[in-house]
Design a binder for these strands. Structure first.
Length: 422
RNA sequence: GCCGGGGUAGGGUAGUGGUUAUCCUUUGGCCUUGUGGAGGCCAAGACCCGGGUUCGAUUCUCGGUCCCGGCCCCA
C-alpha cells in the first residue's frame, strides 16, 4: 500500500462509522433534550484566536501554517475560542442565556497515546449569559446525562473544584510566573502522585517549607466534607467565595440526582477558566479525562464582546470510546438496511420500480445492481449487508403480478402484489 | 519533543540467512439465475520503506515510517 493515513488520524469504515454515529446521535439527542441548540464553527481559524487565552502549550500543539495569502492559520485545537468569537459577534440579537452544542473534529499536534489522537471529535456544550450556580449545575448535569444516556452508570466519577481555591492558595504563597505555573501543575497532578513526590516537585519549584505544607494540606483534601477544612488552609475572601459556590453547586446538583466529589486537584489546563471547574474520570482511574470543563466568565469580554459569564465542557471521543468498550456498551459495529431487492431473470425494470416505491415510503433499500448474479449469491449478499427483509423480484412470481418478501431472520416469506407492495 | 515494545495477505497468525512462506478467516468464481447463514472445488491476496553486511536478507544490522504504550502536556 503506497499511502496510509497520517499518524494519529483514523479511518472510519462503514461498521465503525455506524457505531460512532449511534453514540453521537445519543449525545446530540441529549443536547436537544437539555435545550442546547446545535451550531458549528470553521475548522481553520486565525492563529491569533488561540494566542489570547488558551495557554502557550495549546498553541505549541497546533497544526498551524501560513496560508497562500500570508495569514497565520490553525486547524482548530479546541472549540471554545471559536464559540466565544461567534457569541461576541452576534450576542445582541440573541435572547440570553444562549445554550450551544457542537461536535467538531479538532486537531492537535501531539504524540498519540491511549485516548489521545491528532484528530478527534469533541462534542461541546456551552451556556452564555448565566452567571449563577444554576448554570454550573445544568452544565454538569448535562454532562452526566450524556454518559448515563449512553448506558454508563458507576463506571465514571465527576470531580469538581473551583479555580478560586487554587488561585487563593497560590497567591497566599506570594509566588508568580514559572513558580506559580509549577505549583498549578503539581496540584493538578497530585492525584497521581504520593505526598513525597508532591513535596519534591514543590521544593524544585522553589517553595519554602511553609509553602509546601500549605499546598500539601490542600491536596490531601478530598470529598464534600472537606470544604470546611479548605478555610483552614487559607482563609480569605476569594477562598470563602469559592467554598460557598462549591457548596451551592453540590446542593443544586442534588436536585438533578447527580453525585459529584470535591477534589481540589481539579485545575484544568486552559488558562481561561475562572471559577467552577470539573472533570470526569473512569472509576478505575485507568484512563484520561472523559470530559472536562468549567466557568470562563471573562473570555467573551476579552474577545471584544460585552462582559458575559459562560460555562461549558467538552467530551473527548477517544477516551469515551475506551470507557464504553471497557463497560462493554460500545455499539455493535455493523451496518444494516431495511430491504434488499433481489433480481431473478429479466425483471430489472420491475425491480427498479419496487425499490423506488419502498424508498419513497422512507425505507432503506439496497437494490441488486449486478445483473446475472446467482440467486443464492444475492441472498448471501443480502445477509452480509444486514438486510432485514429481501424482496425477491423474479419472473415466476411476476407472471402472477407478485413478488416475494422474505424475512431474513426467520426465513419466512409471503407473496405480495407488485403494485401496492408498500 | 523524549523513552520503551512492535510491524508477515483485508483481519488473526506460523516460520525461515537459500526450492512454491504456514494455517484460520476474508474476498471473488463455480457446484447453484427461485431460496442465504452449512459443505465441496477453484482462484485472489503478505514478509512496512530505504541503506549496510552477505554469493544470497522477510530473517542480521542501521536509519526512517507507522502502530501500541509511557513521559511532557492534555480531551
Amino acid at each position: 500500500m503506497e499511502f496510509e493515513s497520517l499518524k494519529g488520524f483514523r479511518d472510519f469504515y462503514a461498521d465503525e462509522e455506524s457505531a460512532r454515529r449511534e453514540v453521537f446521535d445519543t449525545i446530540r439527542e441529549t443536547a436537544r433534550s437539555h435545550g442546547f441548540d446545535e451550531v458549528s464553527a470553521p475548522s481553520l481559524e486565525p492563529l491569533g484566536l488561540y494566542e489570547v487565552k488558551s495557554g502557550e502549550e495549546i498553541v505549541n500543539e497546533t497544526y498551524s501554517f501560513e496560508d497562500k495569502g500570508g495569514r497565520d492559520v490553525t486547524m482548530t485545537p479546541e472549540l471554545t475560542p471559536s464559540l466565544v468569537r461567534m457569541y461576541a459577534a452576534r450576542e445582541q440579537e440573541m435572547s440570553k442565556p444562549v445554550r450551544w452544542f457542537a461536535s467538531p473534529k479538532l486537531w492537535r499536534y501531539e504524540q498519540p497515546q491511549s485516548g489521545r489522537l491528532r484528530e478527534f471529535y469533541q462534542p461541546n456544550f456551552d451556556i452564555f449569559g448565566a452567571p449563577g450556580v444554576e448554570a454550573d449545575a445544568e452544565a454538569i448535569a448535562t454532562a452526566d446525562a450524556v454518559l448515563s444516556n449512553l448506558g454508563l452508570t458507576d463506571e465514571y466519577e465527576l470531580r469538581v473544584s473551583h479555580r478560586g481555591v487554587v488561585r487563593a492558595v497560590v497567591s497566599s504563597l506570594g509566588v508568580d510566573g514559572e513558580t506559580a505555573t509549577a505549583v498549578h501543575r503539581t496540584i493538578d497532578k497530585s492525584d497521581r502522585l504520593n505526598d513525597d513526590e508532591v513535596r519534591e516537585r514543590l521544593v524544585d519549584a522553589g517553595l519554602d517549607d511553609d509553602g509546601v505544607e500549605t499546598v500539601l494540606s490542600l491536596t490531601s483534601l478530598d470529598g464534600w466534607g472537606a470544604t470546611d477544612e479548605l478555610l483552614g488552609v487559607i482563609d480569605g475572601d476569594e477562598q470563602r467565595e469559592a467554598v460557598e459556590r462549591l457548596r451551592a453547586l453540590d446542593e443544586a446538583l442534588e436536585g438533578y440526582g447527580v453525585d459529584t466529589v470535591f477534589d481540589p486537584s481539579v485545575v484544568r489546563g486552559m488558562d481561561y477558566y475562572t471559577g467552577v471547574v470539573f472533570e470526569c474520570f473512569d472509576t478505575d482511574g485507568d484512563l484520561r479525562a472523559v470530559f472536562g470543563g468549567g466557568r470562563y466568565d471573562t473570555l467573551v469580554e476579552e474577545f471584544g464582546g460585552p462582559s458575559t459569564p459562560a460555562v461549558g465542557f467538552g467530551i473527548g471521543d477517544a477516551t469515551l470510546e475506551l470507557l464504553m468498550r471497557s463497560a462493554d456498551i460500545w455499539p455493535a459495529e455493523e451496518t444494516s438496511v431495511d430491504y434488499y431487492v433481489a433480481v431473478i431473470g429479466d425483471v430489472r425494470e420491475t425491480a427498479t420500480r419496487v425499490a423506488r416505491s419502498l424508498r419513497d415510503d422512507g425505507e432503506e433499500v439496497r437494490v441488486n445492481v449486478r445483473d446475472g448474479r446467482s440467486f443464492g449469491s444475492q441472498l448471501e449478499h443480502a445477509d452480509a449487508v444486514g438486510a432485514t427483509k429481501t424482496v425477491i423480484v423474479g419472473e415466476r412470481d411476476l407472471a402472477d403480478g407478485e413478488v416475494t418478501v422474505k424475512d431474513m431472520r426467520t426465513g419466512e416469506q409471503e407473496q405480495r402484489p407488485v403494485e401496492g407492495l408498500v
